[in-house]
């Protein structure tokens, strides 16, 4: 199984931000996206996850394979940690949430309401959600925001375990996750130049 991105052009607010992005991600590997703020990493990840249409190019191998996690985790403050995880597990057709609780050290918190957790604990719950989806490709946007050193370590371990089982990870991050053999892709060279046509919507008016 492979995730292939070919000559992808993406737009934010109708304006092309990155053009000609191409890479291949094989099973068992991780790819770290880097680049300055506002360069379009989030937009790229959303496009690959199928949440917004690309201006051009192709993404293959992503259909129904992606577990996406961004800044907001889709957690409900009025549900307990366990209920939140069970909900997402069932939506993705899974049942077992125990490994996810263990991997992110949430067992003691399992019956607390998600609204009473600290920011870092919430983040861990949001990441634990990835484990209960059963999806092979993790697409993560700044996953370590508000995590302490120990939790980042925990997250790195979870990603490594996921990769060992043949999973993949596509991560936009600025810090070192301890993924030694992960490839790094700097997206700055792909910044869309002026020659790149505007989105189909505006191009018609010029």
């Amino acid at each position: 199984m492979t995730l292939t991105v070919t000559d992808l052009t993406i737009a934010r607010g109708g304006m092309p931000v990155l053009a000609g992005v191409s890479f291949t991600l094989m099973a068992g590997h991780a790819l770290i996206l880097r680049g300055p703020n506002g360069v379009g990493k989030t937009t790229l990840l959303r496009t690959i996850a199928g949440l917004q249409p690309a201006l051009g190019g192709q993404v293959t191998g992503a259909e129904d394979q992606i577990a996406y996690a961004a800044h907001s985790d889709g957690l409900k403050a009025m549900l307990s940690v366990r209920e939140n995880l069970i909900f997402w597990a069932e939506v993705f057709g899974q049942t077992d949430i125990a490994p996810a609780l263990v991997a992110f050290d949430l067992c003691d918190l399992a019956d607390r309401l998600a609204g009473t957790l600290s920011a870092g604990q919430k983040r861990r719950l949001g990441l634990a959600r990835l484990l209960v989806t059963g999806r092979p490709i993790w697409v993560l946007d700044e996953p370590t925001v508000s995590l302490d050193v120990a939790s980042v370590e925990m997250f790195g371990t979870a990603v490594r375990a996921h990769l060992k089982q043949g999973g993949m990870a596509l991560i936009a991050t600025h810090i070192d996750l301890g993924l030694l053999d992960a490839k790094v892709l700097d997206v700055s060279p792909f910044i869309a130049r002026r020659e790149v046509p505007l989105g189909s919507s505006d191009e018609a008016f010029l």
């Binding site: 109708g14 304006m15 869309a192 002026r194 505007l198 505006d202 191009e203 008016f205 010029l206």
Partner: peptide, 17 residues
């Protein structure tokens, strides 16, 4: 309406780096 859109598109093109 078309002229408004056209102006916006032209401004957007100029505003790009």
């Amino acid at each position: 309406e078309i002229r408004i859109r056209r102006t916006k598109a032209l401004l957007a093109r100029e505003g790009r780096n």
